[in-house]
Nucleic acid binder design. Sequence first.
DNA 1: CGAATAGTGTCTCTGAGACATTATAGG
DNA 2: CCTATAATGTCTCAGAGACACTATTCG
Lengths: 227, 227
Amino acid sequence: MTALDFTAVLAVIPMSIVDGVVAVLLSKTGGDAAALPTGSLGAGETLEAAARRILSAEAPVAFAYLEQLYSFATPATGSGPTAITIAYVALVPGDGFAVPLQAGDRLALAEVIVPWAGETGGPVDVCTPGGEPLALPPGDADILGQAMLRLRGKLDYSGVGFALLPERFTLRQLQDVHEAILGVRLNKPAFRRRMLDKGWLAATGDRETGASFRPAELYRYLARKGA
Amino acid sequence: MTALDFTAVLAVIPMSIVDGVVAVLLSKTGGDAAALPTGSLGAGETLEAAARRILSAEAPVAFAYLEQLYSFATPATGSGPTAITIAYVALVPGDGFAVPLQAGDRLALAEVIVPWAGETGGPVDVCTPGGEPLALPPGDADILGQAMLRLRGKLDYSGVGFALLPERFTLRQLQDVHEAILGVRLNKPAFRRRMLDKGWLAATGDRETGASFRPAELYRYLARKGA
DNA sequence: CGAATAGTGTCTCTGAGACATTATAGG
DNA sequence: CCTATAATGTCTCAGAGACACTATTCG
């Protein structure tokens, strides 16, 4: 068997929590159409380095936690060579989507609607913050569904949730992240106990400001391996 | 950025449970050295089809459940192009390793030794059934570690364990699979309750034969989506 | 009947949901 | 004092570990 040549494409999924729901940054491709940001792998580049470079070019967020999702081969269509696409999830903390969205109009903020419960799996829908459905290229809805499935599965044993929060956060913010990803409402006392019992959190002693009610305490995430 | 050309390699990890421990089939590369079976992606081939073809060529087992594991780019070393390697896990049921091992001497049966507990992650060691350590190419121990991590993580919510068992099996065999993958001993009554409560199993009414003691009932796995 | 393993009943402990109660900020 | 939310105490229930016990097959 001889080694054939292929093109290598990376698809990056910039994800964050915006207004209490899971949101992604998409490249505008038309009026009500958008697509995942993509780019080509460079020679001598690792996959993660390429994903980070493409994210900076297409959706320049200040910081993101990257995790490889899935790879697939798109068989050659007539002329061109077969393309290998490697999908990466980029978890953006806090309100990191605000800056790239203001910087230009190439990007579209999209809300992710998960039409299945638990860890069933399958494609998801996306719409604008106003509720208008967005059209995606074939395959992108499945990739986004895989990303949601991965997030739901890793949420309560791996600390991916903290990649979506700022350095210091309240337990209510942490619960909002979990509820947005899981798509269910959680019990507050039980959630607090479970999080604190894991030993991943350190109280800072400081409290949030600007609230017109009792301010919540701010916590830090004690980084563990495996994100 | 122009699209560059890369070579695409698939690495397949044939895994099974042999004598109560996790075992892999490796290609012999020397006296005490072995490597994961690999092959090139063909034009117009999907990744899973290529992995299945390579498995048939390198380690011809009768049946295997395939699952994509991870992809990485090996930067070009001087002359050749950058290689993209996509790793697949092939779960082989029952004693499916027996036939390919007898068919030739290109293959080595190796036992996987996991030096970390739980879902810590990291490279693993391999040795012959006799206990002799086997040398692996750089990176292969990490890929095998990722495979073990994936198996441990998916074991109790996804039914991957059943891909390592024959069509009909006893609850003791199922428990042996779980104990081999998790590397811990499990409580029998609790394990039985948990498995039966999931609703994934159907009793066949038949019992195993050949035992010199009370024969156990045989169960079937009620296939669910997501393997 | 003895040996070996299959399969079950029961106690206990832990973790989580539900609900009520107390605490603390601004207006 | 009122309101809204933070934070906690307590009851209850479900799931799992531990352990002992019964059941069934072969020799």
